[in-house]
Design a binder for these strands. Structure first.
Lengths: 123, 123
DNA sequence: CCGTATCCGAGGTGATACTG
DNA sequence: CAGTATCACCTCGGATACGG
């Protein structure tokens, strides 16, 4: 008998929503950086490179909102803020890393498929 | 000695790019639908529900370009077009499904984290 | 039935400047 | 150092109409 994939609409939407959430421009980069341990704001900024201050702030706020990172403020002068993955964040890292590994392993196949397609297409 | 996570910039970007690609609004839904077997255009359209014709076309073109689906045209009247996952597409489904399962399993934790955050935030 | 063309609004992204 | 504020762009997504 067939496995009977459910494809319950609600579930698929939820999955899609999380994928979109994780698929935004900087989220995975930030999360994978934090996978090595807590980091400060500018530390992250430079480690990633190319991200604007605004987008790093936004990305971190959203990650904090979703319970993936904690934000710790040290009320010193100058101020210091540490970001660290929560348990949920580290769990998220597992399937994301799996997808990342797959991506690294198959990026060439994707690129050559893309080249083939573009070569066949009419300009 | 430490595992020495590489975090090579190029790799991270590539991963991020694939995540963004997969994270667009309809891609995972389409791919998971096709996971059950080949489908026609309107069959997909109705199975998904809520997707516009334009976006389904666009999504399928991009998936075809990246080598995740094949497009087969039957030159009948009225025309009939089948879409089917390629080997690469079915392989992609594996880590994506893993992430999807994680999402389903943890959606409640994310939502309650969100509620907590929003309750604490100032309006 | 399947796809393209066009227009439009909404939101994501970034550059810059300013504050505690 | 770690943000917020503002503005301007630009892509995405949807509605609609038309074509093969």
């Amino acid at each position: 008998m067939k496995p009977r994939h459910p494809h319950r609409s609600e579930d698929c939407r939820a999955v899609s929503a999380v994928l979109q959430r994780v698929g935004d421009k900087w989220t995975v980069l930030v999360v994978s950086m934090l996978g090595d341990g807590p980091m400060r704001f500018n530390e992250l900024r430079h480690a990633i490179g190319g991200i604007s201050q605004k987008m790093l702030t936004t990305t971190l706020r959203n990650l904090e909102r979703d319970g993936f990172v904690t934000r710790t403020v040290f009320p010193t002068i100058p101020p210091r803020v540490d970001y660290e993955l929560t348990g949920l964040g580290r769990e998220l890292l597992v399937p994301v890393t799996a997808l990342g590994d797959w991506a690294r392993a198959n990026i060439d196949r994707i690129n050559s498929a893309r080249d083939r397609f573009d070569a066949t297409a009419q300009p």
